[in-house]
Design a protein around this nucleic acid. Structure first.
Lengths: 215, 215
DNA sequence: TTGACAACATACCCAGTAGTATGTTCATCA
DNA sequence: TGATGAACATACTACTGGGTATGTTGTCAA
């Protein structure tokens, strides 16, 4: 029998590191973040991190993946909602925008990952891993793309190029990762109001009809 | 008499370096770009760069400043246009969006600079210089802010929070610096059509009325 | 109680890079 | 024509940071 493998504990140990790493990556960027920085944020040393992750690139990729998986999980409940695609889109967009605010360190890391991949700033074997992650993100993007196309067919949206529109839409929905700053004593409702503004702006960009007070 | 100072030539030498640096910064990011990289892109060595710029940070700041000055110059002709603010906004937004496409390396460097400043990833004395550049950008942002507020007063725009809306608007207008990729045989008209789509999306986000075929 | 192994900490190596100190070349001017 | 300085190139230093090799400690199973 293998000597007791407390999977929960191990996952917990990894999750702690991931959170610290995500924060460091957000605050300092990838290259500017040293493994020692992440370790320091944990009150630990390099050894702890290299025990759970093979390299800095691996750590980064794990943060990326975790961020994307959280997005999938947040949107999943609304994907199969019956009714107009435009309404479905609004729920999904709202969930997405909230994700950008609540899990900001992870989402900024995802963003950095995309930028780095576009720049090809990785070694060949890392590019394979990254390509996988980028696919994960593309698939996620495709989910929204399908919905806005459907909504256009149903006459609720009105826009030109699908690919450009999808880019612009995500740009708006993702934007909180850049300008949102947590305030003391902020409630969930405050955040939802913020997200609401963002979603409304994106909705308009898609050529959605003006409506008031829809959640 | 000072020994012949051919200002044109010197500016030209600096401009060459700035262009190369902007491209390198865009393709690899700030930290990933070594001075040797920039030199190599010029078919030269470090000496050439350190002769014209005191440090890597100084080079970066110069690229940033050049980018912002180009933006000011592009928008300037439309700032004092008579007539509705909404129309004025459209011209300015169009000029801005075109700038994002045409001077992309510089604009991405500007973006990186803002991110770095928000992260505080600079030394104290560099922060002073950077603070100046950030001010330059804030002032530029304020120009647009005034126009959209005016247009709202005139009843042509309709939006909630000014600061958030301005953020979202710039997010959309700036977005080509992330996803635009030059194509072979692309004409000026092609680029303007791209910019047009971006501006229209931003226009809608601002609550502008639907109109067809305005330049 | 003892081996074995997970989960770290410590100490060290080495590649890459910002910055500098020192040539070298060539045009200009007294 | 020689001196001077701009405009670079070359050679070198010092330091940062990723990665590794090795030590240490506590825990669990036999």
């Amino acid at each position: 029998m293998t000597p007791c493998v407390p999977e929960q504990i191990l996952d917990h140990a990894r999750a702690d590191i991931l959170r610290a790493a995500a924060t460091c990556f957000m605050e300092r960027g990838y290259t500017e973040t040293s493994i020692d920085d992440v370790a320091h944020a944990l009150g630990a040393t390099k050894g702890r991190i290299y025990h759970h992750f093979r390299s800095k690139a691996d750590l980064f990729a794990s943060v990326f993946r975790a961020g994307m998986e959280m997005n999938y999980a947040a949107v999943e409940p609304y994907r199969t909602l019956p009714g107009p695609a435009a309404v479905r889109w609004r729920r999904m967009a709202m969930a997405h925008a909230m994700q950008m605010i609540v899990t900001r360190p992870f989402q900024r890391t995802v963003w950095m990952g995309v930028e780095m991949h576009l720049r090809g700033a990785t070694t060949p074997q890392q590019r394979e891993v990254m390509a996988d992650l980028i696919r994960l993100r593309s698939d996620y993007s495709a989910i929204f793309r399908e919905v806005i196309v459907k909504a256009r067919e149903e006459g609720d949206f009105d826009f030109g190029s699908v690919s450009i529109t999808n880019q612009l839409m995500f740009m708006t929905l993702n934007s909180p990762i850049f300008w949102y700053a947590p305030r003391a004593g902020e409630t969930r409702a405050d955040l939802e109001e913020l997200a609401e503004q963002v979603v409304t702006c994106a909705w308009r960009g898609l050529g959605g009809k003006e409506v008031r007070g829809q959640s």
